[in-house]
């Protein structure tokens, strides 16, 4: 603190001095003088002993400082807020649509169960809007938002040139990648929670709340239902980590943020389409989106864990594979942007 202040003072002084000097000095003098001076100095005293600060040791907590900086930087971006805004709007639209459709007394989704899961139950209990909104956004809106944030994570910094300054700071490549990864994961969680909370608020405003019936037909209390809603939100967030890992890997491959985002979202759509083709059923269990909708099994009583576990295992596999691929790529890459 005090050192910085005193430096600032001496700097201000010497700046004034040197300005005044250089104005008075003729050009010829200024050409010769500094050269001679500093040459003599540099010969007289090796820099190792003159005014060089003692080696600074890293604070053990600095990683968290950088993580905080990364989180703040990500969540302060207008683009991130716009993505979250779109996600928050989905439950509002679904809620209003259901309210209008059922205002004449008919049941929602009455034409044979088309539309997202749990749709028909919303009118009985607003809490079901959370489940409906999550199943409506999980196939596309949520992973797209993740794809944008993950795809931009490294490539966007490279594109803006800020990556080279982070690396010479030096943030450390492995550490920077881990921090980007943690930030992407946090965004998965925040995005899912935004959808859930928005749905909960809309559901509570438009529809009655109370005890609810599980898929298995048993009744659970509202508090128990809230607990399951939170659990489902966490599982949905975890379901997105695979896409996040994929996006981050793509992000290390290119120097263009837009290209990385487009590739990630393109892969997402491709996989979703391939998941619908019956001839590919042998491959489908390895698609990151294959078990996404298994979160509905948490609404069974007792909970049916098989697909949930497969989903989480698959996401873990994606994280491991693409996480290591991203690490291998990023730590050896020439940063020329």
């Amino acid at each position: 603190m005090s050192r910085a202040e005193s430096r600032a003072e001496s700097r201000a002084e010497s700046r004034v001095e040197s300005r005044a000097e250089s104005r008075v000095e003729s050009r010829v003098e200024s050409r010769i003088e500094p050269r001679v001076d500093s040459q003599v100095e540099s010969q007289a005293e090796p820099v190792g002993s003159s005014g060089v600060p003692a080696p600074r040791t890293p604070s053990p907590l600095w990683t968290f400082g950088l993580l905080r900086s990364e989180l703040v930087t990500t969540f302060r971006r207008w683009r991130t807020l716009a993505l979250l805004g779109v996600l928050a709007a989905v439950p509002v639209l679904v809620g209003i649509a259901v309210k209008i459709e059922t205002s004449d007394g008919s049941s929602a989704g009455g034409g044979g169960g088309a539309g997202p899961a749990f749709m028909s139950q919303i009118t009985n209990n607003g809490l079901f809007l959370v489940f409906t909104a999550l199943s409506a956004t999980l196939p596309f809106f949520l992973p797209m938002a993740i794809g944008v944030v993950a795809g931009d994570a490294i490539a966007g910094e490279a594109n803006a040139g800020t990556l080279r300054y982070l690396l010479v700071a030096p943030a450390g490549r492995t550490r920077l990648l881990l921090i980007k990864y943690a930030t992407t994961m946090s965004f998965c969680l925040v995005a899912t929670l935004v959808v859930s909370l928005s749905a909960l608020a809309v559901g509570a405003l438009l529809f009655p709340l109370g005890d609810l019936t599980t898929i298995s037909g048993t009744r659970i209390s509202f508090t128990d239902g809230l607990g399951r809603a939170l659990l489902i939100a966490l599982v949905v967030a975890a379901s997105l980590t695979g896409v996040g890992a994929l996006g981050l890997f793509v992000s290390t491959l290119t120097g263009s943020g837009i290209a990385a985002m487009a590739t990630t979202v393109g892969l997402l759509i491709t996989v979703q389409i391939l998941d619908q083709i019956p001839q590919l059923h042998a491959l489908q269990p390895y698609f990151f989106s294959h078990y996404w909708l298994s979160f509905a099994d948490l609404m069974r009583d007792p909970v049916y864990w098989d697909d949930l576990v497969k989903n989480l295992g698959l996401q873990g596999l994606y994280m491991a594979v693409f996480g290591s691929a991203a690490w291998a790529r990023f730590t050896t890459k020439d940063v020329t942007a």
């Binding site: 050192r3 910085a4 600032a8 600095w62 900086s69 300054y165 982070l166 700071a169």
Partner: peptide, 22 residues
């Protein structure tokens, strides 16, 4: 500047604002 300083493992976060201002 605060962001770049946060990326430096040896930078002391307590003096960060003062150093940035300087």
């Amino acid at each position: 500047l605060i962001r770049y300083d946060a990326a430096d493992p040896t930078a002391d976060p307590r003096t960060r604002r003062a150093r940035v201002a300087a």
